[in-house]
């Protein structure tokens, strides 16, 4: 059992507003870790710390340590970190380009120029995202013509194309229908063989079904973190229990 992500006394602010309070976590390799908690409790803030996405917010700052692969994330370039820690967003955000160019974008940024190599990356990535069969005959078509669920799988393929080690999902199914949702869940379970996955979700069934570990956040604090089955069957904290049986949030 290897820890790939570790946060130590993580505190985060937007301006004066404290959004995360003393968050200590250890996230395990090749597992799916679900982040749950009511709206505004800091779930997105937490995972966006892990790939320094919050750097894009002017008023954001944090204290404490975030360690990925035994390296403090402030000791490497944000671009290198983000290549290694991919992210899939709540709303599918394909680029207004062709399906092919969406996938090839990341590898090209990393300096891959060879056409044959790009072709094979595109094919492999789409296969990993279970999208290849649906789009193989229209790679040159705009990605905006895909359905929402397909767009989200395209975004997963795009992320996989730069060969990250960790993939962060921020409510990836909240804009999708149940069938697309279950496809993405299946996909995540498949992906965890190769990647470490952290997923924010509002869907308790999803967390219970798909994840190995679950972290419950409330008002910026990590309340409870443990084995998913155990946490859902026998939560230690009263507030966790209240949340998962739907008493608030």
């Amino acid at each position: 059992m290897t820890t790939v992500i570790k946060t130590i006394n993580l505190n985060a602010w937007y301006g004066e507003k404290l959004a995360l309070i003393d968050v200590n976590t250890e996230i395990e390799e090749n597992k799916i870790t679900a982040i749950i908690g009511p709206s505004g409790c800091g779930k997105s803030t937490f995972i966006r710390c892990l790939n320094r996405m919050n750097d894009l917010v002017d008023i954001f700052r944090y204290e404490g340590e975030i360690i990925v692969d035994n390296i403090n994330i402030n000791d490497i370039e944000p671009e290198a970190l983000r290549k290694n820690v991919g992210m899939v967003f709540q709303k599918p955000n394909p680029f207004p380009k062709s399906i092919y160019d969406n996938i090839a974008f990341g590898p090209k940024i990393q300096g891959v120029k060879d056409k044959g190599e790009l072709d094979s990356i595109v094919e492999q990535s789409l296969k990993k995202a279970a999208l290849w069969d649906e789009v193989k005959d229209r790679l040159k078509d705009s990605a905006l013509g895909l359905s929402g669920g397909q767009q989200q799988r395209l975004c997963i393929a795009r992320t996989v194309a730069v060969e990250p080690e960790i993939i962060l999902f921020d409510e990836p199914c909240s804009a999708l229908d149940p069938i697309s949702t279950s496809k993405i869940e299946d996909l995540m379970i498949e992906l965890k063989k190769k990647y470490t996955i952290v997923i924010v979700t509002h869907n308790m069934q999803q967390a219970a079904r798909a994840s190995d570990y679950t972290a419950f956040f409330l008002d910026g604090k990590l309340i409870e973190f443990g084995d998913t089955k155990q946490l859902f069957r026998k939560p230690v904290e009263k507030s966790t229990e209240d949340y998962i049986i739907g008493r608030f949030g």
Binding site: M87, F89, K91, T159, V162
Partner: peptide, 26 residues
């Protein structure tokens, strides 16, 4: 949309990549 920029940053793009390869074409 900012979401497109975020998508590109999340793949390891620099600000220059995002400006010239995502924002300008869009």
């Amino acid at each position: 949309p900012g979401a497109l920029r975020e998508g590109a940053y999340a793949l390891g793009s620099t600000k220059f990549d995002v400006s010239t390869k995502i924002v300008v074409p869009a």
